[in-house]
Computed example of a mutant assay.
Amino acid sequence: MDILVNLEKLNSHVRKVLVPFSQAMIALHGDNLKSISLYGSAVGEDFIPKKSNVNLLLVMERIDPPDLKKSLKLINQGRKKGIVPLLLTVEHIKSSTDTFPIEFLEMKESYSLIYGKDILGELEVKGRNVRLQCEQQLKGGLIRLYQVYLEIGMKEKRIRSLLVNSLTSLIPIFRSLLRLKGKALPVKKRDIISDLEREFTVNGALFLKVLEMKEGKKVKDNLEKLFGDYLEEVEKLCIICDRMEL
């Protein structure tokens, strides 16, 4: 266990499932495995044992079919315990910060190195790439809202699901918009929405209603109006993002 680091900072449940999995991966891949980092909710206070995922970034020198094949059994065992591994090569990460800037920043801002080289800590992500991905995600999300609505109409259960799934995908974008403003980044979704409203004068109360739907609370608003207002706010964010100067 002495080759693993920062274990004392972890939730006891996370440590219990992470340590044997990490040790087995190191034994399996040897020098080809360069780094293991824990990221996401398992690093912070929001982790819920047996409900939240234990997200692991495993950085390899190479990933060939034989490397994948010999990992199958161990990774399947890990998944049963809530471990969600992401395997990437060193070169893939270094060449992809312009393609997936938000994903790497989200990892970088909430991670703990467990083994090997601190590759996430060394990453540099440029603001212009973050803004571009925000715009792509917002506009892509808006198109999806249009398309799915045309497929399902005003079927209440499916519209609720559509709104909840949309907001879930947009929360990291909201954080990144705040990041581009140079603001301290809140962790809780309600705080993210409140800060977004304050910085960009959007209808935060509307997004909070959808968040309440996600949390299983009853929202008595007219669903058709709620959906229309939601579209309007996402459209507004698309324009704001397009015109943002860094």
Rank of each mutant, 00 (worst) to 15 (best):
M1P: 06
V14I: 03
F21A: 08
S22L: 07
A24C: 02
M25K: 03
L28D: 05
D31G: 06
S37F: 09
G44Y: 00
D46V: 01
P49M: 11
K51D: 02
N55T: 14
L56K: 06
L58Q: 12
M60G: 03
M60C: 10
P65I: 09
L68D: 03
S71L: 04
S71T: 12
K73G: 09
L74S: 08
N76T: 05
G78E: 12
R79T: 07
K81R: 15
G82K: 09
V84A: 11
V84K: 13
V90D: 13
Y111C: 09
G116M: 03
D118A: 05
G121V: 12
E122K: 09
K126H: 15
G127W: 08
V130G: 12
V130E: 10
R131P: 08
Q137M: 13
Q137C: 01
L138T: 11
Y146R: 11
I152G: 00
G153A: 08
M154W: 04
E156H: 10
I173H: 03
F174Y: 14
R179N: 00
K181R: 08
L185D: 10
L185R: 13
P186S: 02
I192T: 03
D195M: 04
E199C: 04
F200N: 05
F200H: 01
V202I: 09
V202N: 01
G204I: 08
F207R: 01
V210A: 03
E215D: 11
K218Q: 13
D221Q: 13
N222F: 13
E224R: 15
F227T: 08
D229Y: 14
Y230D: 01
V234G: 01
K236P: 01
K236D: 01
C238Q: 03
C238E: 13
C241F: 01
